[in-house]
């Protein structure tokens, strides 16, 4: 079995994996980082989004072995010293989550979105989150949260 090493949430990790192991399986099963979720099997829902070298990636659609040496951030790695990331804070403040299942992927996508569009309008936010499905919120409050976070993140 091949060995794969990468940095996840700032920590060096290394493990033997079956070649067919997906990045999301590696995170959930080998590293017990279960905050990254699996909501579909067709790369459509975005519940699995993590950052690989700073860009959002659907972790269900890529193999762990493809990320040798990569720098990966998951939802567990966002809060620093017990302080929520401004995007996490905004989701809480604006009730951008209900069941919470889509939330990790949604937050990771939203952070990348704001990085690319520091001052997004509603249309940009809605289009930018098109790869993430939420069944609970109707997106209304997610859009509000992302806008507020963008303002707070100094966009």
């Amino acid at each position: 079995m091949p060995n794969v090493s990468m940095t996840v949430n700032g920590k060096a990790v290394s493990a033997e994996v079956e070649p067919r192991t997906l990045l999301v399986q590696f995170l959930r099963e080998k590293l017990s980082l279960t905050g990254t979720h699996v909501g579909c099997d067709t790369s459509q829902c975005g519940a699995c989004v993590v950052h690989v070298n700073g860009k959002s990636v659907k972790a269900c659609t890529t193999l762990a072995v493809q990320h040798e040496g990569a720098d990966v951030t998951t939802i567990e790695g966002l809060a620093q010293n017990g302080e929520l990331h401004p995007m996490q804070e905004a989701f809480k403040e604006h009730h951008g989550l209900q069941c919470g299942f889509c939330t990790p992927g949604m937050v990771m996508s939203a952070i990348d979105l704001v990085k690319t569009h520091p001052n997004p309008d509603e249309k940009t936010i809605r289009e930018g989150l098109e790869g993430n499905i939420c069944r609970c919120t109707g997106y209304h409050n997610i859009v509000k949260a992302v806008k507020a976070a963008a303002d707070n993140m100094g966009g």
């Binding site: 905050g35 996490q88 069941c99 919470g100």
Partner: peptide, 19 residues
């Protein structure tokens, strides 16, 4: 009132069944 349950969901600490 802001939701008490949100912190765990927002930090990846929710415990869904497959977790």
């Amino acid at each position: 009132v802001k939701r008490k349950e949100d912190k765990r969901f927002l930090t990846g600490k929710g415990r869904y069944l497959d977790d």
